[in-house]
Design a protein around this nucleic acid. Structure first.
Length: 701
DNA sequence: TCATTTAACGTTTTT
DNA sequence: CGTTAAATGA
């Protein structure tokens, strides 16, 4: 296969320039992923570089997976055969692998667990409790985010303390220190540590650094505009004297500065890597002319940006459509009914549509409208699968068995299912355990050494300890799936969640999918790593469903038809940036640009006269970005204010009390209670069931 | 110790 | 508005 076939001149240049630093400035829809994938394939097939000598860093796991799949096709190899695959993944994923191999050089045991946002916040709370700093003084959430951003800027607890001035900051410094102590004692690393510790590893150990520099003969970084200080340092430390580094990015699409990303990294690339070759990809293969022009006009208002001129061979296409509506439910109905009619005349399939919004909260109204019109949809983002309670419980059990120092996980499951171990008993247990020198599971087996815990709690604890011990003894031999199954049966977890509510079915189903997920992993650490680093945006998409997601989650994706809802002052741009300053406003503009450039053929923007926000009706003005778009847009007149009767027709609930329905499995019956999607139905055979309106396939009669 | 009620609280985006 | 944390009673 000719790996240069189908590439334009600039793309082909980017693929073939294999030695020395390369900066690819890739506009939206310019074939960035294609170029990157071909470059990797070219290195392997034409330059005889071993896959293991290539490091390719992507922004999400999904992007890594996609690249793997494409690479498999290009090279004629099975994408699942990792032997033919370079080191590929997110910064976090790559760092985990490096730390598992070499972490011991800086005192990190290979069985560390990874703490996510929630875990970190929980641990911050514990730290605050021990320091007797109340939550009203400092919110655990804000302390946690200060710690995170400090870490992203590579500011350790001591450095933070040194610059802390106000009492507030001094208290945070205390919390930061305590947090680090507790975290280390638990044998855990948080998200930010993964990066930070790799920097430390490579900085402090010349041998290790040389080893990795020698290993990675070619380094490729995607979405370079979204790298933060720690990631930047990792790159600098990994690049060897041959300087074969290729970065791809677009400063116009930098939307993560609030997470520490610094797009000056991409602007400074030529300074950091002397003699870099700069290649611009400016031909857009995605959108029609009108969409591209409107988006370019929006971004043109930004002052902090590079100059690029995107162009397309595609025709002008249909103009961008702007719709003004009465309120948010009408907005949702417009989106839903447009989609519905386009699909019913056979012009599109559901998977052709994406609805984008600024904040997750906006998805509620849309969901309701979609349920009413029976439109299949999927939400990307929102609550991650692995963030659901029942899943987190099981994961906590697994983590504890794997790393028996992990207090966070133990506190989570100590009384789940309920076994009479309350917060006081738990506190007493920790008090004794920390002095005993035993890990948690061993301590549970040696409770007779203490008498500060009541006999009843002691009994439950040692029972739990025995069960954990059993699973722990299976660690070496059993697969992740078998471990979960054992835990479920020992703890009676499934019985615990089966409480007869409609949600119980969902929970059960979730545990089912957890089991089938687990099946794909040979070892527990691999599985736990996947669970910790899998993001909500990584959910694979279903082309039979409309996709709903935030503008952030849409980065890197494309759809034939895109709706952006809530294009209003206060939402896009978000109200929060008004007081923040120009650079934040410019980031909102980039966010709008990212959203608009997801559209291939049709782009709709909506705004409303009034919207419920914070439980109150707000009257937002149309977003300034719409005014910036120029004349590529057509506006539709505001629809008539809906009448009372119609409002009732579009009631929030798909079903209401007193209606008669027929279910495939239970026959016909009467709706006696409606609680959101949870319906209580009295069936004709006398049984009363709680069902989920979304899944139960009910038919009105 | 646990379950139910009540109050407060907060919404930007996420690896 | 909807969710989660504290407060209360059993």
């Amino acid at each position: 296969m000719n790996l240069l076939e189908g590439l334009n001149e600039a793309q082909s240049d980017a693929v073939q320039t294999i030695s020395g630093p390369v900066l690819i400035l890739a506009g939206a829809g310019s074939g960035k992923t294609k170029t990157l994938t071909h470059r990797v394939a070219y290195l392997i097939a034409n330059e005889s570089i071993k896959p293991s000598e290539i490091l390719a860093v992507t922004f999400t796991n999904k992007a890594a997976k996609e690249m793997r799949d494409r690479l498999g096709v290009l090279l004629g190899q099975n994408a699942h055969n990792r032997n033919f695959m370079p080191w590929m993944g997110t910064f976090h994923g790559i760092c985990v692998r490096m730390l598992r191999i070499d972490g011991k050089a800086i005192g990190i045991s290979s069985n560390f667990v990874i703490y996510d946002e929630d875990d970190r916040q929980g641990l911050v709370k514990q730290a605050m409790k021990q320091l007797s700093i109340s939550d009203s003084e400092i919110k655990a959430k804000s302390a946690s985010s200060v710690i995170s951003s400090s870490k992203n800027e590579m500011v350790g607890p001591d450095e933070y303390e040194a610059v802390a001035q106000f009492p507030y900051q001094k208290n945070i410094a205390k919390i930061y220190k305590k947090y680090e102590l507790l975290r280390k004692a638990a044998g855990a690393l948080d998200f930010d540590d993964l990066l930070l510790e790799v920097v430390r590893l490579l900085k402090d150990n010349k041998e290790v650094r040389m080893k990795w520099q020698k290993q990675f003969k070619h380094i490729l970084i995607d979405e370079y505009q979204d790298t933060n200080a720690a990631q930047y340092n990792i790159i600098k430390l990994l690049v060897n004297d041959k300087q074969n580094i290729c970065v791809v990015g677009d400063d116009w699409q930098s939307i993560y500065s609030w997470r520490g990303a610094d797009f000056t990294n991409i602007l400074n690339f030529e300074r950091d890597f002397k003699g870099a070759k700069v290649i611009k990809l400016e031909q857009n293969y995605r959108s029609t002319g009108n969409i591209l022009d409107a988006a370019s006009n929006v971004i043109a208002k930004n002052t902090q940006r590079t100059d690029k001129k995107l162009w397309t061979l595609a025709g002008a296409g249909s103009p961008v459509q702007v719709h003004e509506l009465f309120d948010e439910s009408e907005e949702a109905n417009l989106v839903a009914s447009r989609i519905s009619s386009h699909v019913s005349i056979g012009a599109r399939k559901f998977g052709d549509f994406a609805v984008l919004y600024r904040t997750n909260a906006q998805s509620y109204t849309l969901e309701r409208a979609f349920i009413q019109l029976r439109i299949p949809y999927q939400i990307i983002g929102g609550v991650r699968f692995y963030d659901r309670k029942e899943i987190k419980d099981i994961i906590a059990y697994l983590r504890l068995v794997y790393q028996p120092q992990d207090r966070m996980s133990f506190s989570r499951i100590a009384n789940v299912p309920v076994r009479g171990i309350g917060s006081t008993s738990l506190e007493k247990f920790f008090l004794w355990q920390s002095g005993s020198g035993l890990d948690i599971i061993s301590a549970l087996a040696n409770l007779d050494q203490t008498n500060i815990i009541t006999a009843r709690a002691k009994q439950s604890m040692s029972d739990l300890g025995k069960k954990l011990k059993i699973v722990q003894s299976m660690l070496e031999t059993a697969s992740p799936k078998e471990l979960i199954e054992k835990l479920l049966s020992l703890t009676g977890y499934l019985e615990y969640i089966a409480d007869g509510t409609p949600q119980a079915e969902d929970r059960e189903a979730n545990i089912g999918s957890l089991l089938s997920d687990a099946q794909n992993f040979a070892s527990l650490p691999d599985f736990l790593e996947e669970v910790a680093l899998m993001s909500s945006a990584d959910t694979s998409s279903d082309d039979q469903k409309v996709t709903l997601m935030t503008l952030h989650a849409a980065k890197g994706l494309e759809f034939p038809v895109v709706f952006i809802v809530g294009v209003e002052e206060g939402i896009l741009p978000h109200a929060r940036v008004y007081e923040a300053g120009l650079s934040e406003l410019e980031e909102e503009r980039r966010l709008a640009y990212v959203g608009m450039t997801r559209a291939r053929e049709e782009l709709h923007l909506t705004y409303v006269q009034s919207r419920m926000q914070f439980g109150q009706r707000a009257y937002n003005q149309v977003s300034r970005f719409i005014g910036d778009m120029g004349n590529q847009i057509i506006a539709s007149a505001p629809t008539m204010k809906i009448t009372k009767q119609e409002e009732e027709f579009f009631s929030d609930e798909p079903f209401s009390v007193g209606e008669f329905v027929r279910s495939a499995s239970f026959g016909s019956g009467e709706v006696v209670e409606v609680d959101g999607l949870a319906l209580t139905i009295k069936f004709d055979d006398g049984r009363t069931k709680k069902l989920n309106a979304e899944y139960a396939r009910l038919e009105k009669i």
